[in-house]
């Protein structure tokens, strides 16, 4: 009896060690491009059969193909993006990543945390509200003192904190789309998200009672973020240039109706 029990215990401990070893070894090798993403239409989202698709998804796949690398998409919590990058569990942030903004918590520019690729798309933040309250939200001033929702660590959060001022409050969400539920449920007055996302989702499905407010916000650009000093930045830049020159990038943008936003800026560096 004693022997059986101790054998069983040893067995369990051994299995435990194997599991932990297996999960430590390997890691993300050089030949894999592991993109940290959140679900975000039309950049990265799941199609009917559960596979990742979207503009950024396909763009990353094309770049990886160009570089002879395998591409992987790893969903992350947006607030953990720098930790994931530092720990090496992803090796780029490729998810409609606004390059020319600051992090709300630290006030530091994002380029202090990551190396950016060329910027490739124009974007704008926008204010999402309940459609029935459109009259209340006519100007940026009307946002002061209200309660907002924005994705933790997003460009929208930075804007929201400024817009509501001292008297208001900003509620953090794990992903941009989660803010839609906050607005719909009435927990917050408005949400600040990327306009490309809002155009896809506000007014459709369960979000049919939401709308984009007529408030003009400053424009910004998307780029891919890499770990500081990574040699991937140069490689990906090269592949982006090739794909832009041979027209494949423009083709892809057209597929997702983004041809007006596409703009590869090879002079951009954070």
């Amino acid at each position: 009896m004693k022997r059986i029990i101790s054998l069983a215990l040893t067995g369990v401990l051994l299995i435990g060690m194997v599991v932990s070893l297996a999960s430590c070894s390997g890691g993300s090798g050089d030949s894999k491009l592991v993109c940290g993403i959140t679900a975000y239409e039309p950049m990265n989202y799941r199609d009917g059969s559960g596979n990742w698709t979207g503009f950024d998804t396909e763009f990353a796949a094309l770049v990886a193909q160009e570089l002879g690398m395998k591409v992987e998409y790893q969903e992350i919590e947006w607030g953990s993006k720098y930790s994931e990058l530092e720990a090496g569990t992803i090796n780029c942030i490729w998810n409609g990543f606004t390059a020319n903004t600051v992090e709300t918590d630290t006030g530091k520019s994002r380029s202090e945390y990551v190396d950016f690729s060329y910027s490739y798309m124009l974007n704008q933040q926008c204010v999402v509200i309940k459609a029935e309250r459109a009259g209340e939200f006519a100007s940026a001033e009307s946002l002061a003192g209200k309660t907002a929702a924005a994705e933790k660590g997003s460009a929208g959060e930075t804007f929201a904190v400024e817009a509501v001022g001292e008297a208001g409050a900003v509620v953090d969400s794990a992903a941009q789309v989660n803010t839609f539920i906050e607005v719909k449920s009435g927990a917050v007055d408005f949400a600040v998200v990327d306009i490309l996302l809002a155009k896809e989702l506000a007014g459709s499905g369960d979000y049919s009672d939401l709308a984009i407010a007529g408030i003009e916000l400053p424009s910004e650009v998307y780029a891919v973020g890499f770990k500081k000093g990574s040699d991937l930045t140069e490689k990906v830049n090269g592949a982006m240039k090739t794909l832009s020159d041979n027209g494949k990038l423009a083709e892809l943008a057209e597929k997702y109706g983004l041809e007006n936003s596409l703009q590869l800026d090879t002079s951009f560096a954070g």
Binding site: S23, C24, E86
Partner: peptide, 20 residues
């Protein structure tokens, strides 16, 4: 996160991490 931060050896299995 710590294996990646300190040892430069990122954990590859999220599921395995959760089980441990």
């Amino acid at each position: 996160y710590v294996p990646g931060f300190l040892l430069g050896q990122p954990v590859s299995s999220r599921f395995g991490t959760a089980i441990i």
